[in-house]
Computed example of a mutant assay.
Amino acid sequence: MSSLLITGATGFLSGAVLAKALSENAFDHYLLLVRASSAEEGLSRIKENLQRFACDEKSLSSLSLQNIIIGDLAEPDRFLNDERLLEVTHVINAAAVASFGENALIWKVNVEGTLKFARRMANVRKLKRFLHVGTAMSCIPEAGALVTESITHKEEEEHLVQYTWSKSSIEQLMLEQCPALPLVIARPSIVVGHSSLGCRPSSSIFWVFRMALMLGKFMCSLGDKIDVIPVDYCAEALLMLVKRRTVEERVYHVSAGDERSVSFAEIDRAIADALGQPPLSSDYRQVDYEDLIQCRREFKTIYGPCNERLMLRAMRLYGEFSRLNVRFSNKKLLGLGMPHPPRFVDYIRHCVETTRGTSIPEMMKVDFK
């Protein structure tokens, strides 16, 4: 009997994975790691998250208290002795503190707790695949590059944020300290929205594009490209990687690749079209971060009530990423039979429609926990 353990099951990506797995009857049994005070509360949180993905009632009712394992990677010792782990055949480890803010839990969860969990699962005899979800940005790509998969580890000071440093570090530690773990690493690029549900499941990162275009200036040029995929495509790829009997590579990008990445000019036109307004085109200006600081007094007028310092921090962080103009090669994933993803501009209208009436500061909360 196949048994899939999903960590971070109330999150954006894991919710999409579980919704798709249930709809396809991909596994015989599911074990879902949830932070909650009781199994009842955990099950309720899982179902509430699945409803954001329009999960049907049949799929929702298939889950019970037996599918819930109460635990937190911040305190892994509390669940690692659960006997149900012995029956697990496949793992999708997507739990992480995915904040670009300053969060004391990033290292505790993403590295220390995850390593303890990996060590435990390496001793589960029935385990066939441990799919760890990293991030394509952990490799610190060179500006303008088409990046191929690599497990090269770079120093902390080269990372823009602690999040990418933590994701790079845990990959190295698992490879070094868990040789018996049937490990495959999936590195998604930038996951934004859902190809049909837009930002209904989560507004994560979509607000960055709206913020920059509302301001009329940002640190990237309109000609720069960005590698974006929808969460449902990413979920499909993760399920394929975890279920596939054999894989030849240790690391796979889940990305738009060179062919399906989009320029900021295309994004501008698509958002403008969805809003029924003209694109910025020649009115847009590429600026340095110092120029953004100078216009901070305009933020409340443009965005409504907001924390100017947090807005500037967001602009600096995402501005640095946006002007990298990198794409992540997806040839290895496509070589396994995975189809090309939709282009961001092909579903961006859904993202616009599902965030109407929501302010930029409200949308930002998911990424600055």
Rank of each mutant, 00 (worst) to 15 (best):
L4Q: 01
A9D: 08
T10L: 04
G11Y: 03
K20G: 00
S23Y: 01
D28R: 06
Y30F: 10
L32I: 02
A39D: 14
E41P: 10
Q51K: 15
F53R: 08
S64V: 04
I69K: 03
L73E: 06
E75K: 15
V97H: 05
A98K: 13
F100N: 11
F117Y: 07
R125V: 13
R129S: 11
R129Y: 02
A143H: 09
A145V: 05
L146P: 09
T148D: 09
E155P: 07
E157T: 15
H159V: 05
L160K: 12
V161S: 13
W165D: 12
W165T: 10
S169N: 14
I170F: 08
E171L: 09
E176V: 11
A180I: 06
L183H: 00
I185M: 02
P188N: 09
I190E: 11
V191C: 02
G193I: 04
S195W: 07
F206D: 06
W207L: 10
L213P: 01
C220F: 15
G223V: 08
D224V: 06
I226A: 02
I229Q: 01
L239E: 01
M240T: 12
V242K: 07
R245H: 14
T246V: 15
H253V: 12
A256Q: 05
I271P: 01
P278F: 00
P279S: 05
D288W: 12
E298V: 01
E298T: 08
K300A: 11
T301S: 11
I302N: 02
Y303V: 02
E308R: 13
M315N: 08
R316V: 06
F321E: 09
F321V: 13
L324W: 08
L334T: 11
M338K: 07
F344W: 01
F344D: 00
R349L: 09
R349H: 12
H350E: 15
E353D: 15
T354Y: 11
G357S: 06
S359Y: 03
I360L: 08
P361Q: 06
M363S: 03
M363Q: 10
D367L: 06
